[in-house]
Amino acid sequence: MTNSETRPLLQWSAAMAMSGTIGAVVLESGAAAPAVAFARCFVGGALLVIWCFARGWLPAWRPSKRDLGLAVLGGLFLVGNWVLLFASYALSSISVSTVVYHTQPLILVGLAAAFLGEKVAKSHLVRAAIAFGGVALISLSAHGEDGKPVQLAGIGLALGAAVLYAGASFVAKQLKHVRPHLLAAVQTTVGALVLAPLLLVTPLPTNPQGLLWLVLLGTVHTALMYVLMYASIGKLPTTTVALLSYLYPVVAVLVDIAFYGHRPTWPEALGMLAVLAAALSPQRGGQSKGNAKVSRATDPCGTRTPARRS
């Protein structure tokens, strides 16, 4: 493997591993979900805006009213998805919420079929049935840290987050011509503005430790993670991206087990495997060659990632 292949591989792997630790950072901050989402938008968005200015992308961008409106709408979906997902951690567990959340690729295909008229293959229907069967199995068998069954509200919030995530990805499909860094900067800025009033109800932590966790979330798990993903995904084969995407839920489950005492039951583990196998397996068709690059994929943050640009 050449250096040109190794670097994007390591960048994408690092981004997926970072994603898997988001749940732990959210819980350790001790803040309510809206406050956490605001901090992620404010810190991460500010850094992304600076990055776009430094690269000359933001000063040169002249969006149409339609593009700006869609970007704002996608931002609302994106931050809403974060609020629901972060809230779900406390009601279920990091691993359960993360795995249930990964039903979103299947939901996105459903949205594309409903609103864009795209055909849904029989294989997708089978995968969807397997995934949501896995969600049902998790709902009936998963237990939290205290050994009690997880609250169905937590699973419901994770599913709601998946729907909003799919909505953000669906909107981003209409903005394929917009550089994803710019789209992310706009969406996080919108999120910070929308969530700021909620700080009157769910304020930021007053202790330095909680604030440091939120700064970590904005810098490492948002700005740096976005840059790593966008620098690598367009240079990797589709199959490699799909395979390494498993790092996100796998790391989340391992963190939950190692640091929060979560012990999956056998039915729960079987449900998790069903969801991940169905939702993360690459779709057949389209790019058939093993070295085909990802050109119009959606990334784990809900925005579209293009092929490499010079």
Rank of each mutant, 00 (worst) to 15 (best):
A131D: 13
Y89C: 08
A161D: 09
I107E: 10
N291A: 13
P63N: 09
G286M: 09
A129I: 02
G110I: 12
L254N: 04
L27R: 12
A196R: 00
N3E: 13
A60E: 13
A15E: 11
L228N: 10
E268N: 10
S19G: 15
G75F: 08
A46E: 02
S141R: 08
A14Q: 02
V251L: 10
S123P: 01
L216S: 11
I138C: 02
V36W: 08
P249D: 11
R127F: 10
A129S: 11
V215A: 14
T6Q: 12
M1V: 07
L236E: 07
H102M: 09
K65S: 15
G45H: 08
R62W: 03
A87R: 04
I257N: 00
L204E: 08
P197T: 12
K173Q: 14
K176M: 10
A223P: 03
L211R: 11
A60L: 11
A185H: 03
D299F: 05
Y101E: 11
T298H: 07
G156Y: 06
L195K: 07
G133Y: 11
L157N: 06
Q187E: 15
P180F: 05
L193T: 10
C301K: 01
A269N: 08
I155F: 03
T265Y: 00
V190I: 12
K173T: 11
R179L: 12
G191R: 06
R296S: 14
M225Q: 15
S64N: 06
V220I: 15
K119S: 15
L84W: 04
Q287K: 14
V186E: 11
M272T: 03
